[in-house]
Design a protein around this nucleic acid. Structure first.
Lengths: 154, 154
DNA sequence: GTTACTGCAAACTTTTTGCACGACA
DNA sequence: TGTCGTGCAAAAAGTTTGCAGTAAC
């Protein structure tokens, strides 16, 4: 699945500018990794980015791709699809509910909300397949992490 | 973080009944893993479940915990928090959007929807921390997987 | 010319698998 | 008693890190 060329170029420009203005070097490898992520809307993993970029830059290594996506994610230029990093986490709560996820420490808390429960799948989604569950994920920074951060600033 | 005892017991009963009625054996290990997940609302990973269960069943092995959560997830008795299994996936689309995720093949497609964009964080979430993003995750089975499934049934 | 970045290799973490023994139904 | 599940060990998959050479600024 590919992103329209114009939109992909726009995204690459955003990524390049951001790297430069952060004082980071705009290397051949970083540019090609950025180009790959920007032009692929299947939400690829590192392995897939690596395979595609290698067709254009045969000497690139897998760990450079890992480091590059880490840099881009750090700058907020690309998102990670999963709620949290690390190991898979499990949930025995089968009642309808939603999640608050702290992007710093990985805390997940269940949210019960009548208004969130009433969210319905739009046409666009039903066109892709059968929607079996609708879950709202609220991401942010929990109070504990916020407190630790302001402590550190002093 | 612990689940109220009564609710935890209810969940254990549901899990035990489901195992039995699926013709699976209700072993000591499975019961204790079920008990642990049911009583813990922090959405633990396998390592954490293992550590806690081992206090009660010192001989249990880590791979039994892996196999048990896989069985419970297969039966739909516990949920996996992450959108998809396997490697971390990246997204260069910084515009506000939502996701349709196929639980069979891991397909992720972006969903643009004005009505989903208007979903707001409830009080309950703001009480836990600063909410920075609200994303709706629609899970289900994509058309392709549905088709493959009905082919197989014939 | 510096310094940050890359590629290589090795380590580490998370998860899966094959096999023989033991326990549930 | 037969079969499914467990524990052990080893391997596979995914990710991170130290180091020496290379390229960006």
């Amino acid at each position: 699945m590919t992103v329209p060329a114009l939109e992909a170029e726009r995204r690459v420009a955003v990524l390049s500018d951001a790297l430069r203005s952060s004082g980071l070097r705009l290397t051949h490898q970083r540019l090609e990794v950025a180009r790959e992520i920007a032009g692929d809307d299947t939400h690829p993993d590192v392995e897939s980015i690596y395979r595609h970029v290698r067709e254009r830059v045969p000497t690139i290594s897998l760990d450079t791709v890992y480091r590059t996506v880490a840099v881009l994610a750090e700058l907020g230029l690309v998102g990670r699809v999963n709620a949290t990093a690390g190991a898979t986490r499990y949930d025995a709560n089968l009642a309808r509910h939603h999640h608050f996820v702290c992007t710093r420490c990985g805390l997940i808390r269940d949210i019960y909300s009548v208004s969130l429960d009433s969210v319905e799948a739009p046409e666009e989604a039903s066109a892709l397949g059968t929607v079996e569950s609708v879950r709202v994920q609220l991401s942010g920074v929990c109070k504990e992490c916020r407190r630790k951060e302001s402590d550190r600033e002093r």
